[in-house]
Design a protein around this nucleic acid. Sequence first.
DNA 1: ACGGAAATGTTGGATATCCAACACATCGGG
DNA 2: CCCGATGTGTTGGATATCCAACATTTCCGT
Lengths: 185, 185
Amino acid sequence: MTEAKTDPRILRTRKLIMDSFIDLSSKKEFKDITIKDITTEAMINRATFYYHFMDIYDLLDKALTEVLLVNLNGKEYENSELNEETLISLFTAITDFQTSLSTRCHRGYEDTIARIIRDQLEVIFFRMLELQHPEEVEEGLKLSATMLSWGLYGASMEWRRSSDSVSPEEFIKTAIPYIQNGIGN
Amino acid sequence: MTEAKTDPRILRTRKLIMDSFIDLSSKKEFKDITIKDITTEAMINRATFYYHFMDIYDLLDKALTEVLLVNLNGKEYENSELNEETLISLFTAITDFQTSLSTRCHRGYEDTIARIIRDQLEVIFFRMLELQHPEEVEEGLKLSATMLSWGLYGASMEWRRSSDSVSPEEFIKTAIPYIQNGIGN
DNA sequence: ACGGAAATGTTGGATATCCAACACATCGGG
DNA sequence: CCCGATGTGTTGGATATCCAACATTTCCGT
C-alpha cells in the first residue's frame, strides 16, 4: 500500500548502468572496469553514477543481486512449500547462477557473491517457513532460514569442488532426507 | 569549429526512442505503432517525445535517415571520387537498405522513404562533385547532384521491379557507361 | 449516428541528470 | 624520490526530463 512510485528516470538510469556493467563484465575483469567505462557505455554522466551507487562495489553487489533475482523469479517461490521439489529448484538456480558468473571474471569477490546468494536464499526460506509455520515465533524461523541458506550455499560449494559431473539435482537429493527430517513436522 | 556540443541527455534519449521505434517496426506495421508504445519501450515520458519530434512522421523520417546513414557510412565516401566503384557501392547500399526495410512494414510510406534516400544521395554526390570540379559554380553541381540522386534512385526502383535475380552490381554496371560519359571530363 | 475510450499534442512547475571544477588517492617511469 | 597521468568522490548551478492535467481528435462498438 505504501505507494510512492520511484521516478522513471531513476529506473531507466539504473537499468542503463547495470546493463552496461554486466556487458563490460563479459569483456574485462572486474578489477579492470572503471567507473568512467561504465558511464560512457551507459551514456550517463559520471556524477549521476554516484547519485545511485556508493561506489563500484555497491554496483557489483546490486547488479549481482538483480541477476540472481532474475534467475530465481522464473521459479515463483512466492506461495510454494518448502519441500523436495522447491529445494532442488533452488539448488539448481544457485548452481546455474554460479556457472553463469564463472564465464565473467569476478576473481577475488567470491565473498561478495556468496553473501548475496545467502541473503536472497534467506529471504525465500523465511517466506516459506512463515507460510508453513504461522504459529512459530519469528526469531526461530529467521534463524532456521539463516541456517538453511548457509547450508544450501555450502552444498553448492561442495558440488563445485567435487566436480565428478553428477547433476545438481542428483547431488542435492542425497542431502534432502537430512534436511527434511530436521525441518519436517 | 562551431562547437556547441549537444547535451548527452538529448543524444541518449533520441537513441532510446529511435531504437525502440526500429524494434517495434519489426513487430508491427507502422500504422499500428502508437507514440505511447514507443515511449513505454524507450522508458521515457510521452511529453519528452514531443520535445524531440514533431510527430510520429517526423520520427519515421529521422529514424530512416539514421539507418540509411549507418548503411552508407560503412562505405566512407568522404574523400572518394565519383567513379564506377563508388557508384556501384552507392547503388548496392540503396538496394540493401530497401531490402532491409521490406522486412518491416512501411506500406504507404514509400514516398517518404524515396525522398530520404534521394536527399542523402544528393548530399553525397554534391560533396564528390565539389571535390572533383572545384572550378565549377555551385548551382551547376547542385543540379547535377539532384539529377544523379533521382537517377540512381530510379534505377533501384527498376531493379526491384525487374526482379530477374540479376545482382545489383551487374544491374547498375549496364548503366554506368552512360552516367560516366555524361559526367566524365 | 452517437458516445465512450484511446491517441494526439500542449503546458507549468518539480526533479533527475549534466557540467565544470575541485581535492584527493594511486600508480608507473625517469 | 617525484612527477605527470589516471581514477575516485563531491559540489552548485544549468538544463532535460517527468508529471498531471487539459483540450482536441480519432476510432470503434452498439
